[in-house]
């Protein structure tokens, strides 16, 4: 799968920078490539640039869905029977390091002040303190889906500031 080998890392890092979460980004990456495979026959592209643009359009839609609904869309992954691999802790650290999340997280500290108290706490726990969602939910006294939804909405609110963060995106912001 040369196309996957060529683009998978770029997609994963693109999504990691925007979700600030390597595990969520891997879920979105899996759905992106599953949808790309299903739609492959229907899209006419002449160049690798067009193909890449199409792929990232799918990735952006996954982001949009995630920010809107608080969870990754898994329609194509489910229908194809793909098991999204789990991420080893070391691998997760490497992904988030490659995505430059340390720098983004630093910038976030300033932007967090603009969020509501409940959103700030959710982002603080999940993104800054890197707690698993189960623990975030326990700390907030809400269900895990509710915690995920709160974090994703807070991140959507931060989206504009993230877009202006000085993180290279390979020209695909």
């Amino acid at each position: 799968m040369p196309f996957y080998r060529q683009e998978a890392e770029a997609v994963l890092l693109f999504l990691t920078r925007r979700t600030l979460d390597g595990e969520v980004a891997l879920e979105l990456t899996a759905e992106t490539f599953a949808q790309a495979w299903r739609g492959w026959e229907r899209v006419r592209v002449d160049s690798s640039e067009e193909m890449r643009a199409w792929l990232f359009t799918i990735a952006r839609r996954q982001l949009s869905h995630y920010f809107r609904r608080g969870q990754a869309q898994r329609a194509a992954v489910r229908r194809l029977g793909i098991r999204t691999p789990s991420v080893h802790e070391d691998d997760l650290a490497a992904i988030e390091d490659a995505a430059g999340l340390g720098e983004v997280r630093h910038g976030l500290a300033i932007e967090l002040a603009h969020l509501s108290d409940e959103q700030r706490e959710a982002v603080q726990l999940r993104v800054v303190e890197e707690m698993p969602y189960e623990e975030v939910a326990r700390r907030l006294g809400v269900s895990e889906p509710a915690a995920r939804a709160r974090v994703s909405r807070a991140l959507r609110a931060l989206q504009s500031s993230l877009a202006s963060a000085s993180v290279a995106d390979g020209g695909l912001s």
Binding site: A8, E9, L12, L26, T29, F33, G81, I82, V87, I95
Partner: peptide, 23 residues
């Protein structure tokens, strides 16, 4: 060529398995 991240290798293997099984 291998991926820098193990998770992407695993995902590639999974995609390859599914596509081969269904094609």
């Amino acid at each position: 060529m291998s991926h820098r991240f193990r998770a992407l290798e695993d995902l590639e293997a999974e995609l390859t398995r599914v596509i081969a099984a269904r094609a």
